[in-house]
């Protein structure tokens, strides 16, 4: 166990806990954009920067990925921290001036108009969609293309993916609504041969049978709906939970979440 102080409040947490989690336990809110509980820490948006003090050391780190250390002092909203966060939001606002999430953040921080040229994009490149498609669904239908200022999220060669299972997880995690589900495109899957149909639960090894009573129209799937309601998030994240708890059959899982 490790004891540290966040904003002058002492707390003892397990080794390996991130600063974000530790702060959360104390009810201290730190803004994030690229963080998701069900995914590995990524540390890309840098909105969650906090100041740490340790012996002679004083620097800024990302709370979402930095682990707690014994005797560490964390300051989550010093002037310096707020100033840096404001600049980061200003960067994002000039990139995506019409995205609600970013506009709200900017409003809260008192940024009216960014001092930079605006780019009118939707995507902030937080990588949530790419990570959920790779880490959770295990599909990798979308990925990052290019690098630096040309970096974007795309399917290979900017063509309709032939591996996408239409689970919609990318769209559901996107904080800026940059990814839309196109029902027409999803229906494309129905035209596939029977053997090529993919049920996301079967794909994750949660169920074994091959025939779907909903004709692979996931949006009609009751199981799907129930999991969605129980978790309050996209059902794709259920998979990780199930795998973690080593519950192989989704029935017992369903039973568990219905209780």
């Amino acid at each position: 166990m490790i004891t540290l102080a966040v904003d002058n409040q002492e707390i003892t947490v397990k080794e390996g806990t991130t600063l974000l989690k530790a702060s959360e336990k104390l009810g201290i809110e730190i803004p994030t954009l690229c963080y998701h509980e069900g995914l590995l820490p990524y540390g890309a948006c840098r909105l969650c920067v906090v100041e740490i003090f340790k012996e002679k050391e004083n620097r800024m780190v990302a709370a979402c990925s930095f682990p707690v250390e014994e005797g560490m002092k964390v300051v989550t909203s010093s002037d310096r921290v707020l100033k840096r966060r404001r600049m980061i939001v200003e960067f994002l606002l000039s990139r995506c001036p019409d995205v609600k999430t970013i506009k709200d953040l900017a409003d809260r921080m008192g940024i009216k108009k960014p001092r930079f040229k605006s780019k009118n994009l939707d995507c902030i490149l937080c990588g949530l969609c790419v990570r959920v498609c790779n880490e959770i669904a295990g599909i990798g239908a979308i990925g990052f293309v290019s690098r630096g200022k040309k970096l974007k999220v795309d399917t290979p060669f900017h063509m309709a993916s032939d591996v996408c299972i239409g689970c919609g997880a990318c769209s559901s995690v996107c904080p800026t609504d940059a990814i839309e589900m196109e029902l027409d495109a999803v229906k494309r899957f129905l035209e596939l041969l029977g053997s090529e149909h993919k049920c996301r639960y079967a794909l994750m090894g949660l169920i074994s049978y091959k025939v779907c009573s909903n004709n692979y129209e996931c949006w009609k799937c009751k199981i799907d709906q129930r999991i969605r309601d129980a978790l309050g998030t996209h059902p794709i994240f259920a998979a990780k939970k199930i795998k973690k708890e080593k519950v192989n059959q989704y029935f017992s899982f369903l039973k568990k979440i219905q209780e």
Binding site: N134, I139, T155
Partner: peptide
């Protein structure tokens, strides 16, 4: 491996 990884 996913094609997206190769394209990356």
């Amino acid at each position: 491996i996913p094609l997206s990884q190769v394209c990356r």
